[in-house]
């Protein structure tokens, strides 16, 4: 590995981190869990001279939840912590299930939610779940704080809407809705591989428990960024849940995605797996929401 790093900073506050990043400009890279950054460093794809670690910014490590305020997850919370969290499992199942299938246990023990989001691999698992769960990102930078719906953060393959010296601070999830259910399903060859296709679904049933009042879908492996197939959601919203409706939703989601062709899978195959997995993820979500038609 070419040795380019001559500075390592570990500020203890978020403002401190922003200042250090401003100071060093393009020479600096944020270091979260390092499970993506250190790969790029070893491959010579990045050559920062300064690493700004967020490990000592304790406020970024917490998870807080209340039924009225929802959940706030600090960017430095690890995948393992999300996987093991009872609160995440109970109220935001898709996120716990996504975190549990990120790579292997070694990666999950150090890899962070914030780092995963900012790395913006379109085959990553947590972003799809966050899209389905309606997450908002809290970004902090020299100009102050701004909030962004998670699906608006991803610009392109490995590219996100982060301004200079801006840091992803927290991920906010809305309060759990009544009669809701969510799930994340991932298709890959071996456990721990990146997704060939990943589908996160979230539904809320109407009071009659027959109609789907609200729905969100997040897709992994379906484009150059994590995707939200809005036309597929529109097809379903307000209608009674049925196998036929779910199948149509799968078709619409497959039509809405533009998967990448690569050595892991062809675009055709990724699209096909989206078509298959969307109804399955919806079916599980409906069961969890208490739909009598899906037990």
């Amino acid at each position: 590995m070419q040795e380019t790093v001559t500075g390592y900073e570990a500020p203890e506050t978020l403002d401190g981190a922003v200042s250090v990043l401003q100071q060093h400009g393009g020479d600096a890279k944020v270091l979260a869990g390092g499970q993506s950054l250190l790969v790029l460093l070893q491959q010579g794809l990045l050559a920062p001279s300064v690493l700004v670690s967020l490990k000592r910014v304790l406020e970024l490590r917490s998870i807080s939840f209340s039924p009225s305020d929802g959940m706030q997850i600090g960017a430095m919370v690890t995948q393992a912590e999300l996987e093991r969290s009872d609160v995440v499992r109970e109220h935001y199942a898709a996120l716990g299930e996504a975190a549990a299938v990120v790579a292997g246990v070694q990666i999950r023990n150090q890899g962070t939610l914030g780092g995963n989001i900012c790395h913006a691999d379109p085959t990553a698992d947590p972003p799809a779940a966050l899209i389905a769960l309606g997450a908002t990102l809290e970004l902090v930078g020299p100009a102050g704080k701004r909030m962004l719906p998670v699906e608006d953060f991803f610009r392109y393959f490995l590219e996100v809407d982060l301004a200079d010296a801006e840091v992803l601070a927290r991920v906010l999830l809305p309060p759990p809705a009544p009669r809701h259910g969510s799930a994340y399903l991932k298709h890959r060859l071996r456990h721990g591989d990146r997704a060939i296709a990943g589908v996160a679904a979230w539904v809320q049933l109407a009071k009659d428990r027959l109609r789907i009042e609200s729905i969100r879908i997040g897709l992994s492996g379906a484009g150059s960024t994590p995707l939200r197939p809005v036309p597929a959601e529109q097809l379903v919203r307000g209608h009674p849940a049925s196998e036929e409706l779910l199948a149509a939703c799968g078709e619409a989601a497959a039509a809405a995605c533009e998967p990448l062709d690569d050595t892991e899978a062809s675009a055709w195959y990724r699209r096909e797996m989206v078509r298959v997995l969307v109804p399955r993820a919806l079916s599980i979500s409906l069961r969890r929401a208490g739909s009598p038609a899906f037990r």
Binding site: Y8, G34, L38, V39, Q43, Q106, Q110
Partner: peptide
């Protein structure tokens, strides 16, 4: 790259990839 696990060590008892740890 953190894909093979041959570099696994324990950090405070938890398995990590030592090739992806500074």
């Amino acid at each position: 790259m953190g894909e093979c696990g041959a570099c696994t060590v324990l950090l405070d008892g938890e398995p990590v990839c030592s090739c992806l740890t500074l």
